[in-house]
Design a protein around this nucleic acid. Sequence first.
RNA 1: AGGACCAUAGCUCAGUUGGUUAGAGCGCCACGUUGACAUCGUGGAGGUCGGCGGUUCAAAUCCGCCUGGUCCUACCA
Length: 992
Amino acid sequence: MEKTYQPEQIESRWYQRWEADNRFAPSGHGAPFTIMIPPPNVTGSLHMGHAFQDTIMDTLTRWRRMQGRNTLWQVGTDHAGIATQMLVERKLATEEGKSRHDLGRNDFIDKVWEWKNESGGQITQQLRRMGTSLDWSRERFTMDDGFYKAVQDVFVRLHEEKLIYRGKRLVNWDPELNTAISDLEVENVEVDGHMWHFKYPLAGGETYEYIEKNSDGDVILRETRDYISIATTRPETMLGDGAVAVHPSDERYAPLVGKLCEIPVGPKEHRRLIPIITDEYPDPTFGSGAVKITGAHDFNDYAVAQRNNIPLYNLMDRKARMRTDGLSYEASAELASRAAKGENIGDVAAVNLVPEPLRGLDRFAARQQVIEAITEEGLAVTRRNEDGVERPLVENKKIMQPFGDRSHVVIEPYLTDQWFVAVDELAKPAIAAVENGDIEFVPKNYENMYFSWMRDLQDWCISRQLWWGHRIPAWYDADGNVYVARNEQEAREKHNLPADLALTQDEDVLDTWFSSGLWTFATLGWPEQTPELATFHPTSVLVTGFDIIFFWVARMIMLTLKFTGDVPFKKVYVHGLVRDGQGNKMSKSKGNVLDPIDLIDGISLDELMEKRTGNMMQPQKAKAISNATRSEFPEGIEAHGTDALRYTFLSQATTGRDIKFDMGRLDGYRNFCNKLWNASRYVLMNADGEDTGLAPDAPVELSLADRWIISRLQQTEAQVTSALEEFRFDHASQALYDFVWNEYCDWYLELSKPVLWDENASAEAKRGTRRTLVRVLETTLRLAHPMMPYLTEEIWQRVAPLAGTFNEGTEGSGDSIMVQPWPMVDENTVDETATHDIEWLKGVIIAVRNIRAEMNISPGKPLDVLLTKGADADRQRLADNQRFLAKLAKLDSISWLENPADAPLSATQLVGEMEVLVPMADLIDKDTELARLAKEIDKQEKVINGIEKKLSNEGFTAKAPAAVVEKERAKLADSQASHRLLMEQREKIAAL
RNA sequence: AGGACCAUAGCUCAGUUGGUUAGAGCGCCACGUUGACAUCGUGGAGGUCGGCGGUUCAAAUCCGCCUGGUCCUACCA
């Protein structure tokens, strides 16, 4: 074996072997255990979030597999409609200078498939690097044939039940991508905005008395007005106003209700009139209390317009430019004015209320022009500034502006025909499933997040004006009648359409999340009732980030309950975001992204800087990022191997919070891998080719240390297992780390040396120690395997043949650790006595080490040590463990002093009641030692005082449980003993 | 505006139902290479558990308020 662990040589070899041997396919005979991987974008690449998530899923999967469960970890990728289409469009533009429209729909889609086939392997290759035991033989894609069928089926059936409908609604429109998006794909960001105040003159020059009162009811303003004052952050939408609304209780405007006012924009001769109405929506205490209602360009206004039958006038095209189509402004204004008076004007779609000079302008340019025109006309509300000049009132104001989460452009509420899922009926059972515990969130508090969202759910807009995705299975005839069916033929049959009737399919595709919502059951063959579906569904646990609970988890629950009658998963393990070491979100623009593969393989500083700044347009920013990178990673990043990376993720996988990825820990766990590697080297050096007690009838003698480490192993097995059951990967990894490093390596291996290297030790004892060394290691490897698969497999191959315990119950498949049984706790080998004895032994050794350090005695200098004042048990322990003590504490001799009074001047430490003496008359520095003792005495006195105070408190002795009081008394006795000893020491030294 | 989570050693984090002398790793200091490992060993320094109040015999832990941070949801024309 190499002297240090070299992961790169081991990992790819084992992964290929596992995959070739079909180790990842379900094979257990126990209860099924299923995890569905959250399908990564097919054209994506592995980021830290994936790596983290995949580590957790793989750990669970490997663990359950070893427990004998019939384990399936289903793999697949997502077609990721918008993301993939954007990517290919950008590629097309840069490489061929073409847009998708140059290619046309079919050729473009071919192009995407081409790209998918070319690059889709990247993410799956990277997944393999993480050691994931995914069943590649069942890999799925959300646009493969099976999914196509499932999606058609779900769509058609939901439509038949009227749970999918089509309608003209106000939706979030992305003017860059030219598609509708769902509420969830909108990010609201606070930006600096303005609020303008304009006067809407009353029709026919009418006037009224405007009276403003303060909260006490005193009149603070009284004036005659011929207008109503309106505030807006989006003046360009005034063109599409359909009404002005005031609150019904607002006395200021009561005289105006039912009258008409004039929108102060557009050609003067065709100014439109709109009614002043009442609605609950306006807040009388905000602004002027009067709100313009632009039903086609604002969600709140839309609701008001619906309630009050106000027409919706669309002003913009798909790119959020002012419309150029439809009727002339003059004709449109005429129609709209008739509508305002209550006339039915039929289809409003042709009405284009954008004045000709503004047509074709971008929305922001149009805004500027509208503001200027109104201001010029004197219809802006003015305020006298500090300098005494009247100026138009423009408030600077933080406003929340909606941005597309992909395109990062301002989203426009836009009136279009879209397909929707009516969610009310689907949400009810989905809420119930979590309420009644059929689905459990870990940690629990995410259930609240889920409930609050589910209880206030809007219908889900599922149509996207994209090309890449599942095309909506609906066909139209020339008259616009719609026929929903699985295919055109079925549409004709279903509706008895004449063969010569021309049908065209809906141009839109479905929201990506519509198909991924079917992920847990469509991957298993649904709508066919396959054996896989019967076996592996519902799945056991979903591992996912909190950020997609709404996007994905909630929708899976709704759709799966609807179509399988069962929940998609029983548990949802929700994890936080992986952030950088400083707690910042990793992002390309910040240049702080870590690539899991780089952490595994290592990367030079130059390459890392290039990677982080490669496509960056601004040289200044690139330089800043380079500098930051250089100061954080002056030497680049070393290779750490997959297991170390996995272990780091697991140790940081604490519940309910984001993860600050800690490079220091990564180094630490790389060292841990090396530690385990070297411990194994030691075991193999001492056991390979030797008698490890494999023969069933060979007599074996187990030493104290052997019994102790076996006992500790049982406890570790119990800890790791229960930690995994509770999804506490941090605890599982910690328990294993402690056992391996602090017990097996630090103590047991050292304790094994005196036996193995002692020529006088019996064959039985040597055999027992070798057997224990090997078996404990072998079991530990199995315990560690789900967390660190490569290292454990590599070592296990060499250790297992010497351990001879691995074939139990898994005959014929004993050639990989993957298929070995998970360690079972054996209560019979838990040995309390051995534990106490070893603790005593450690106590003596540590006491000597302490004395060495305190007295500045070289660690190598052999000492003669005396023990005294102990019980008979201590004397016996000394007799039994002479050679261990001598070896580990580097002693010449250690013996029992019958009469404490005979003790020479010594440095002394207590182990229980017993004293450990290192005689050292010649070594002592009087003053230093006295100072040290004074400090120690002081410390003990503080402890004693604290406990005495506690014990003298009657409330404590009366009310605290007896055991707690007893514990305090024992502590007091210990401290008093220490104190006495220190005092004696001080006396002796002082007498020198 | 409503809600969630977080605040423990210089850094990253543990700390079960209240009872520890408050722990780990990294970093730091001192010492140490003959027989698994310097990606190591031994010993050590370092914390009034964000602040204030309360409940209790007893609070890092339970309750309230405050401060600071992260995030979600909804938003006011």
